[in-house]
Amino acid sequence: MSDCQHHWVMTNVKYGFVIFEKCYHCKELRTYFTEDDSLLLGDEYREGEHFYNRLESAQSFTFDLICTRCNRLETFNDLIGLFYCTSCMPNCQVEKLQQQYAPHKTWIMVAFGVLPDAKKNPIPQAKLDILSDYFNQRRDTTRSRIKIVSFELIADLARCKGGFIHDVGLLTKEGPSEERKPLF
């Protein structure tokens, strides 16, 4: 079936929140996606050996891709959001790639994954390529292209000021966003 020239469309779009948590004891950072907004106001809690403290949350949305030609479903359970770089750290690998690709009219976008799992099992390059294909196949690529890279390239997650692409303020208006404080 690999001869199919895949034509991807988004499916299973879910709206929710990315939660950043850190364990007091082992200092490990974990991230996950949830559709449950009650988690946003929760206190720290214990889970096994860990004692998680909520650091930050952000609106996001997740999705899968399906090929309209061969019906192949590509799931993205390990993707919790698409993230944009704000060039906040000059020595960050994402920013360096941006600089490198900008003259070729290729824009970098970051696929944000699940921590700590991604440390052992990074988002596979093949999946990142499918994401890039999805955005490129529907655009006028003579003008510009999209390249999706993994969030592991971010130099310092705690200081990163990038943002998740999300549906802002569907309930009410949101004021101008303030600068985000370092996570920890």
Binding site: F17, L40, A58, Q59, T172, K173, E174
Partner: peptide, 19 residues
């Protein structure tokens, strides 16, 4: 308009518009 004291969490939920 636009002034808000809502926390990051609240704004993430769409509240605290300053409206």
């Amino acid at each position: 308009e636009g002034f808000t004291t809502a926390s990051e969490e609240m704004r993430a939920m769409g509240f605290g518009s300053g409206m």
